[in-house]
Design a protein around this nucleic acid. Sequence first.
RNA 1: GGGCCCGCAGCUCAGCCAGGUUAGAGCGCGGGGCUGAUAACCCCGAGGUCCCGGGUUCAAAUCCCGGCGGGCCCA
Length: 1072
Amino acid sequence: MEPGPELEREIQERWEREDLLGKVRERNRDGPIFYFLDGPPYASGSIHLGTAWNKIIKDAVNRYRLMRGYRVRLQPGWDCHGLPIEVKVEQEVLSDEIECKKDIEEKVGVDRFVEKCKEFALKHVEIMTEQFKRLGVLMDWDHPYMTLDNEYIEGAWYTLKRAHERGLLARDVRIVNWCPRCETALADHEVEYKEIEDPSIFVLFPVEDDSEAEVDLPDNAALLIWTTTPWTLPANLAVAVHPEEEYVLARAEVNGEEWHLIVADKLKVVLSAVADSYEIVDRFPGEALEGVRYRPALWDEVPRLRELHGENDRVHRVYTAEWVTMEEGTGCVHVAPGHGEEDFELGREVGLPPHCPVAEDGTFTEEGGRYEGLYVRDANERIIEDLREKGLLAHEDTVRHRYGHCWRCKTPIIYRATEQWFLKVTEVKDEMLDWIERVEWIPEWAGHSRFRDWVENARDWCISRQRYWGIPLPVWECEECGHLEVVGSLDELKEKARELPDGEPDLHRPWVDRVILECPECGGEMRRVPDVLDVWVDSGVAAWASLGYPRRRDEFEEWFLKEGSCRPEDEEAGADFITEGHDQTRGWFYSQLGCGVITFGACPYRTVLMHGFTLDEEGRKMSKSLGNVVDPMDIVEEYGADTLRWYVLRSNAPWRDMHFSWRDVRDTHRALNVLWNAYRFTKMYSELDGFDPEEHPLEELEEHLQPEDRWLLSRIHTLVREVTDAMERYHVHEAARALYEFVTEDLSRWYIRLVRERVWLERDDPRKLAVYAVLYHAFDRLVRLLNPIVPHVAEHIYRDLLRGEDDPESVQLLDWPEPEEGWIDEELEEAMETVRDAAEAALSLRQRAGVKTRWPLRRLFVEVEDPERLEDLRDVLARVVNVKEVELGERFEEKVPVARPRPDKIGPEFRDLAGRIIRHVEEHSEEVARAILESGEYRTEVDGEEIILTEEHVEIEERLPEGWASAEFEGGRVYLYTEMDEELRREAWAREVIRRVQEMRKELDLDLEERIEVWIDGDREVLEAVREHRDEIAREVRARELSLEAPPEDCDLEREWEVEDRSIVIGLRRGA
RNA sequence: GGGCCCGCAGCUCAGCCAGGUUAGAGCGCGGGGCUGAUAACCCCGAGGUCCCGGGUUCAAAUCCCGGCGGGCCCA
C-alpha cells in the first residue's frame, strides 16, 4: 500500500460504511454554530480544476472547524436553473426538435422542455457529486440544497415579495442586454466581452433646417456621424453633440459632391479620411448646433423614419449631451433611443420614443422598412451598400473592439428597449456599501477595493428573463385593472388562487402559469407575468432558501440566527463563511448582498475568502481551444486526491491565480511519500520491538530524551501553534506549507536521520523507547494537523499506527491539538538551526577534501558567538558529520596568524632596504604577525640597522594549520580536520565492509532479523580492520559467524567489491 | 478611460504590510556522495539590472510617485 487512489477508495468506503458524517454530527451536536454556506456550482458539466480547488478549500476549513468542535453546516448546494442548461438541452438533448426559441413552445411544449432541463440538472448533480466525493470532501451529499426545489423557490419568491413591499421591485422600459439567440434579456453580469471585428463607418446626415439653432449653415451642410453598428441606423432619431466643445464647419468634396461637414474640432482629423482636402469655413461651440434638424441617412429605405419625422417635431434634431466623447468618432453621435442606454435617457429627456424596429430574435420588423426580416448583423452589409449608392457613406473601414456576448451561447448581444423587471439596487446602494465594511474579507482588498468598486458602479438589476427553466417571477397581473400581486409562498398562492391546476404543485413553468388569481381590486382574472428570474437571484437567496425559509423556521433559527440568539442585522447572523473565486465579485458576492439587504436589511454572510482562478503554467486561461485543460480527475487517478489537495492548498495563496504545474504535483506526491515512509519507519521498528505507547508514555521516558528528541517535540508543538494560527485566519496555504516543511525537512530529513542508529539498540533500551514515544507523540499531533489537508493519508496513519481500542474510528473525530507550551523550547530550535547550517558546511568541506561521510574524522571545531548554546547538540553534530570529537568555541585558537608584507608601504619608507625587509617578512611571517598582534610592533635588524614594523606595513592574515579546512555558515565558521590516521582508516574499512554486507543481505532479500554467516577476504589493511572491528561488524550485519578467509563454494552469495582501489571478497550464507 | 491584483533564478513561488545580514526555497540542469523507512535522500555548482524611471531615507525587492507589461472586473 502506498498513498494513492487505491488507498483512498478503501478509506472512503470505510467512511461511508462507518457513517463518518453521522458520527461527526453526533460528536459536535452541542457545539457552537459554524454556518458554512456552499456557493452552488452550476449543475451542467463535470468538475474542473477550479471547482475542485474551491471545494478543497471549503473542505479543509470545515474539517478544521469540526475538529475544533463546531457544529458545521455541511450542506452542499447546486445551481440548477437558467439559460446554460436550457442551451444545453436545446443543443444536446432536443437538438432534432429545436431550431429556435419558438420551437420550444410550439413543437416541444414547455412541459416537456422543462422536464428535460430538470433531468439534465439532476443528472449532472449526480455526476459532480461523485467527483466531489472522490476528492474526499466531507459533506452531506444526500441532502443538498437545490435551487429547483419548491421550498427553495419559495425562498426566492419571499425575497421578491419583500422587494415589492419595500418598493424595490419595478417594471420599466429600459435598454437591456439582449441575446437574440436565447431571445431574452441578460443582466450586466451575464455579458461577456470579447474582441471582434465590426464595420466602422462615417455617414452623412444632411441638414434640413437650422432655424431653431444659433448657427447659420449653408445648404449643403451635413452632420458627420460615426458608428460601428450600421444596423442601428434605421432607428436613428437624433444626433448628440457636446455642448462646450468646439465644432467646425468644413468644406470638402465627398464622393464627388461638395458638402459642408460638421465635426468636432478635436476630431477633425477624420476629415482627411473622408475627403482628399478640406477647408474650415466656420467654428462654433456644440451648443450652437442644438435644434438643427436633419434628414436621417436611411430616409428612403425606412418609411417609418419619415413617419416619425413628420409626426414628431423633436425627432431628427441635434441635442447636446455631456457624455459625447472627443476620443473617437466625430463628436456628432448617432442616437437611437431604442438601442442604447445613453440614447434612451436622452430620448426620454427630450421626448423621443424608444423606437426599436428589431424583434426578439434580432431581425428587423416591418418598421425596419426594406430591411424587414433581416438579422441585424446581416443587415449591416445591405445598409452600407445603400448608403454608398446614395452618396452618404463618407468612409468605410473595420474596427476590432470588445463587444458584449451572451455568456452562455456566445452570440453577440444587442441593446433593445424592452419592458423588464428590476430590483432597484441603486436605492439601497448605500446600505450595501455599509455592509461591505462590516464583512471580513480575505484578502482585505477583495472587499474594500474590488467589490466596493463594483457595487458603487452597480445599476438596477434586471431580473426578468423571457425563458422557461428558472424560478418563475411570482407576479400576477389583473387583466382588467392592471393590479399586481406578488406572491411570497405556495401557501399564499393556494389561498389567492381561483383554482389550482391538477397534479402535485410544481412551482416551475408551466404548472405555475396555469394558476389564475382573482383580483382583489376588481375581481378580474389575474395571470402570471410569464418571465422567469435571473439565476443569480436563485443563488442570491441561498443563505435562507437553503434553510427552507420562510416555509420552515427551525433551521433558519438555528443557523442563520444562531439558535435565535440574534436578529438578521446583527453581526453574528447569516453565513459564517463563504469562499468563491474572484469572478463571484459580480456574481454571488453581489447577488447575495443585494438580496440580503432587500430581504433582511443585512448582508447574509460574514466572512469571505476570495480565491483565484486556475490557469496553466504560462498563466493562460485553461480552454479547450488551447488544449491546456487539466482534468482534476486525471490528477486524482494518477496521484490521488490527497496529492491534489495538498498541491492546490500549498501551491499559492488562495486569492492568487494558480499557475498549474504537473511538476509541482509530482513534487507534492513525493512529499506524501516521504510522510508515508516516516510512518512506515515508525511502524516497522516499533512493531518489531513490540512497542506499546500506552505502556511507555513520554512522561516516563523524559530522562532518556536526547536533545534531538526534545527538539522534535518542540517542533511539533510549534507547528501546532503555527497551523492553528493559519487556519484561524483562513490562510490555509500557510498551514499546508508549514506541514510540508515539517514533514520533509524536520521529521524525515533530520529527525529520522538522527535516530536511525538508535533504533538498532537493544530491545528494551530506554533511549530507543524514547524514540518511539517521541515519534508516536509527534504523529499523534501531526495526523490531526494533516487531516484537513490530506484526510486519507492522515486517516490511514491514525488507524494503522495510533488508534487504540477505545479511540474514535476516525482522525476526524479527534480534537484539534493544543500546543503544549511545556515542550516548546525556542532556544533549542534556534540552536538546532545553527547546527544544521554548521553540519551542512562541514559536509561540504568533506566533499571538497574528498573524504566520504562514511569515513570517520577526528575533529570538528565550530566557531560561533555563543558556543554554550550548542553544547547539548555536540553529539548531534558529531553523528551527522561523522567525527570523533566536536569542539565549540568563540575562536578557533589553532589558527596561525601570518603577516604579508605590503610593498606599497614598506617601499617608500625603507627605500634600499625594502627588498630585504619584504623577504624577511615573508620568511618570518608567523613571527612577525605574532609580535605585531601581541605588542603592536616587530623589531629586527636588517643590514645592521634596526627596523620597526607595525600593522601598517603588513597585512595580518590567518592561516589554517596543516590538515584543516574551514568554511563559513550563517552564524559562524566550521573547521574540520580532514586527515585520517591508521585507526580511523581501519574503522572506515570496517564501515565499508558493513555497508557491502548489508547490500548483499538486501539482495538476498533477507528478513531484517535473520542471521547469517559471513566470509571476508581482502588485502592486509582490510583484514586488519575487520579483525579489529569484528564484533561490531558481526553485530550490525547480524552475523552468527564471521570468518576472515575466502568464502566457500557453497555460500548463498559471493561478491567481489572494488573499494578505493582495493578489492574485498565477501561471501554470505543464510543462517539455519 | 476607471478599479483591483501581479511582475524577483529556465519554471513555480517565499520575502514586501511593519525598510536594515551576502535576496531565499522547491523543481529543472551539471557534478559528487549516501544506502536495511529509500521508485528516497544528502552535498556542491552554475543561474538574479528583484519590470523600468524618479523620489523619500544613513539604508529600498520592501515605502511614495510616474511609466511599461500581464491578468481580472468595469466603462
